[in-house]
Design a protein around this nucleic acid. Structure first.
Length: 415
RNA sequence: GUGGGUAUAGUCAAGAGGUUAAGACGGCGGGUUGUGGCUCCGCUAUGCGUGGGUUCGAAUCCCACUAUCCACCCCA
């Protein structure tokens, strides 16, 4: 137990960490190009933030939160998602008083108490972007575009962008009533999970994997047919903007978002290469959320993207992430006097910004070379009695195997 | 929460009741005393997830537990 990470968590070891560094760097670069600025919020928040933000009825709030009382008897929750905390910070720091829109990105760990499976962890990591302050569908298109560009930049080729509109508080209830009226006569024919869904989230029934249920809902009323004029126009604008950007998409009228705060635009980037949890990036518009959290009525749009899932998809696509380069030089030494000289040389070279290593295991010269090879050393410097006596170093080029003697004071010119 | 699969060295992996648990990779060392990547040799699990049970005898059969993987649900 002591030597096991908790269920649903994973260590990112050095042989993987360089991949994380790679995508993190790329993501930050793309965000900079798009004018999104980084925001960092705490790992935990007041529980109520998520109850209000994500929604009391959602699975996340009802059964997946890491919630505990702190020593001051406050109810604290490890963040299960990134948007609510950003909205909280946006309100707290009165960012709405600054020129809009506000464009933010983040790179965070999130926590949800779920049963782990492929592409799903209890402690996972996600990128997110959010744009506040504009109803213009250019913002939605830009949000989608930044995800699209990042996914492409990562070399991922088989992801499909699906878009939908989930309507707004004006038109969604109309559709919901129509849908329930349509489904009610068939209630007993649905699978048991769909019977539950009938009460909690009837739109999900449209997406049920059971072929029987699929048949039952074939002619069900679709949200897209019930959009009010404003939502309909917004959806048309979104499609137009995506077309202008040359972003391919398919309309999937069954896309539902699991968090209560979404309005109008909903979208997912989906792959089938990493198992059942194929949503690599998902998001949408949330025009009521800022107000719900206690700020002034302010529209917003954004997405979250699972870093583990991105990495898995890259792997599945055979993307090769450049490995860290080898070291500039390895210093091999023979004897105590040489050790002192080697130590000093290594220190000097390191201060010059070179990556240099030497053996600390007492290996003989042969195995020091072996180590140098494994470390990917470009050059190996040899120091022994001969070199000490003649005031020079032997320097071997590990690629060409050529060895030359270099006066000690000139060593910096060849490394 | 429900269902299914799997658990043998650092890693991959043979083994399917019977003397000292294959092999490969990796690691460490060596091939005459100061030179790697190739090759050759040696070493590297008193123990087969944990706890019970069956048996003269179990890594191999049975039970429980735990871990892990996958799927449902849901989501990133």
């Amino acid at each position: 137990m002591l030597t096991h990470a908790p269920k649903g968590t994973k260590d990112v070891m050095p042989d993987q960490a360089y991949k994380w560094q790679y995508i993190e760097k790329k993501f930050a670069e793309i965000c900079a190009g798009y004018g999104f600025q980084e925001i960092r919020t705490p790992v935990f928040e007041h529980t109520e933030l998520f109850q209000r933000g994500v929604g009391e009825t959602t699975d996340i709030v009802q059964k997946e939160m890491y919630t505990f009382k702190d020593l001051g008897n406050r109810s604290i929750t490890l963040r299960p998602e990134g948007t609510s905390p950003v909205v909280r910070a946006y309100c707290e720091h009165k960012v709405y008083a600054e020129p809009q829109p506000t464009k933010l990105y983040y790179n965070i760990p999130c926590f949800r108490y779920e049963k782990p499976q492929s592409g799903r962890l209890r402690a996972f990591h996600q990128y997110g972007v959010e744009t506040f302050g504009t109803m213009n569908m250019m913002a939605d298109a830009e949000i989608i575009a930044i995800g699209y560009d990042f996914i492409n930049e990562m070399g991922i080729t088989d992801v499909e962008l699906q878009i939908n509109s989930v309507g707004c508080p004006k038109c969604r209830p109309v559709h919901r009533d129509a849908l329930k009226a349509f489904l009610k006569p068939k209630y007993n024919e649905f699978c048991t999970t769909c019977q539950d869904r009938f009460n909690t989230n009837p739109m999900r029934i449209l997406d049920c994997k059971s072929p029987i249920d699929q048949e039952l809902v074939k002619d069900a009323p679709m949200m897209l047919d019930y959009l009010c004029d404003e939502c309909k126009e917004a959806f048309e604008d979104l499609k137009k903007n995506l077309d202008s950007l040359g972003i391919e998409y398919v309309i999937n009228p069954k896309i539902v978002r699991g968090l209560d705060y979404y309005t109008k635009t909903a979208f997912e980037f989906i792959t089938n290469k990493i198992g059942a949890q194929g949503t690599v990036c998902g998001g949408g518009r949330y025009d009521g959320l800022v107000e719900e959290i206690g700020g002034p009525s302010t529209p917003g749009v954004g997405w979250g993207m699972g870093k583990e899932r991105i990495l898995m998809t890259m792997e599945a696509c055979g993307v090769e992430i450049p490995q860290p380069a080898g070291i500039d030089a390895f210093i091999a030494f023979i004897g105590d006097e040489a050790q002192a000289a080697a130590l000093k040389l290594m220190s000097n070279l390191r201060r010059d910004g070179k990556s240099v290593q030497m053996d600390v295991m007492g290996r003989n010269i042969k195995n020091q070379f072996k180590l140098a090879d494994r470390l990917g050393a470009k050059k190996t410097i040899v120091i022994g009695d001969n070199e000490l006596a003649e005031n020079k170093f032997a320097v071997k080029d590990m690629i060409t195997s050529e060895q030359v003697e270099v006066p000690m004071e000139e060593i910096k010119n060849v490394i």
